[in-house]
Amino acid sequence: MQDTRAVLHTIIQGSTVDLFHTHGVAVAPVSQIARATATLEAPTGSELLASITFVGRGCTGTLILSVPEEVFALLKQDPARPYTGRDWTREASNQLLGRIKNRLAQFQISIQSGLPSTPGRDAVERLRGRSNLFAAYGFRTLRGRINVALGGDIDHSMFVYSGAPLNLASEGDIILF
């Protein structure tokens, strides 16, 4: 029987590395902390924060993404059409949850995502104090540390691996009808 917690950790870490790679930012996982001791680093005030909720059968919660301003500064932008770090981080949280969601589909876990938002520091502090923070991850970059945290509840017994091909499209695909 597969260790579903290990599967979930692999999915979250792999999704984060892949996402930032597509945006031209090299990241490497530095830590993975199990539920019993999970802590979310206290916001320092200089990072960009975004959160997005999710809900599904046996699975509900919030994903929080924290990105240093210095990492956002690495992104290539059209100077004539710049976007803000806050909005970019919200969209990155949406794309990260999308990747996680698509990989969870192999395990018969179907989740719906909410709309991404920018949490205040007080909201992050509340999440840090919650007992059901089930995973927190750190990723090293050349310009500081990216953090991903998930809070909520997940029923690991709902994971049922399907070896059958799912015919799911993946990130970057363009399907023409």
């Binding site: 996402l19 945006h23 999308g98 499209a169 970057g172 363009i174 399907i175």
Partner: peptide, 18 residues
Amino acid sequence: GARGWMIKPVKMDQLVST
């Protein structure tokens, strides 16, 4: 009646050619 479905993030050169 949509003509296609693109999954983010899409490469902009592919989007433009589509």
